[in-house]
Computed example of a mutant assay.
Amino acid sequence: MLKSREPQTEGVRVRAIYVETVITAPLDAIWRASQEPVAHCRWDARFTRIMPIAGTAPAEFRYVTAVLPGVEIGGYGMHAGQRDRPDGTRTSALRFGSADVRSPIADGRGYWRYVPGPDGVRFLTGYTYTTRWGPLGRLVDLAFRPAFGWATAWSFDRLRLWLDHGVPPERALRNTVREVLLRVAVLAAAVLLGSGTVAGALAIALTALVLLVLPPGRETPAARRCLRRPPDRLAAAAPTLLETL
């Protein structure tokens, strides 16, 4: 279904969205939570449903993402994983795309790495994609790509909270909604009380700044807790497994 367009080799840097977190849960638990479709959809905000296609090799699937209530965009992909690499790490490679003209993403590729270390498992991803809609798509991507990267990082922290601290993804989402509404309410109150004076305007600006930098609660996912740039060559390198898709 998906054809390799660009040869990838170990050590070649992929210009990609990058996200990394450290999870102290066992490697097998992280693998299951990220590789099993139902578990994956619980924590990853980028997917609402993942439907494997039986009997395909490499494994193919279709996915659905709810972008608004009652509005869903579908896509397709294929993936392969390596559980027993000589260096003790694990790797998963992915190619994906969407035929839905409403999707800003035409096709893409990416990888996950699972790297055990003394402080836990480095769970990281690098991926990139091509846009549709021509020049308009490239313009839209100026906002979409940062938002998509943020959603990936928020989801990774949501997974960490689930596996390391027992916070179910559904509760983590509720915590996020509650905190966002509370911050909006505080800012709205500041605007109502401070409108019309210079001192009030300064108070509104200070309130907005505090709300922006104030870290979320310990049981609320936060994209800021994740690395957003690859710290080393291993993290930035696309695996050779990607060539097989």
Rank of each mutant, 00 (worst) to 15 (best):
R85G: 07
A238S: 12
E72D: 12
G75M: 01
R228Y: 02
T220W: 03
W150G: 00
L161A: 05
C226M: 13
G77S: 06
T89S: 15
Q35Y: 00
A201G: 11
W31P: 05
I30C: 01
P104D: 14
G88A: 10
P104K: 04
L68S: 13
T128H: 11
L212E: 14
R183L: 08
A189C: 14
W150D: 03
P169L: 07
A16K: 02
K3T: 14
R42Q: 13
P37D: 14
P52N: 13
E243V: 08
Y114E: 03
R178K: 14
A39S: 13
G81K: 06
G149C: 04
A188F: 06
R183H: 12
A143F: 15
T91N: 02
G88R: 13
G126E: 04
D107M: 01
M1W: 11
A237I: 04
L124H: 06
P116S: 12
L139K: 07
E72I: 01
L139F: 14
A99E: 15
L206H: 04
T220C: 15
R174C: 07
W162E: 04
V101S: 15
R85D: 10
G55C: 05
W31H: 12
P7G: 07
G217W: 09
F156S: 03
R102M: 13
A147Q: 11
S103A: 11
G217Q: 07
L202V: 15
A172K: 00
L193D: 09
A235K: 00
T152K: 07
V101K: 11
A222T: 08
I73H: 05
T89Y: 10
V186K: 02
P26L: 05
W154P: 02
I204A: 06
A238F: 04
A147K: 09
G200M: 10
T89F: 07
A39K: 02
L212Y: 03
P239N: 14
A153P: 05
P58M: 12
A99C: 03
E72M: 04
D44T: 01
A190D: 02
T130C: 10
T128Y: 04
L2R: 01
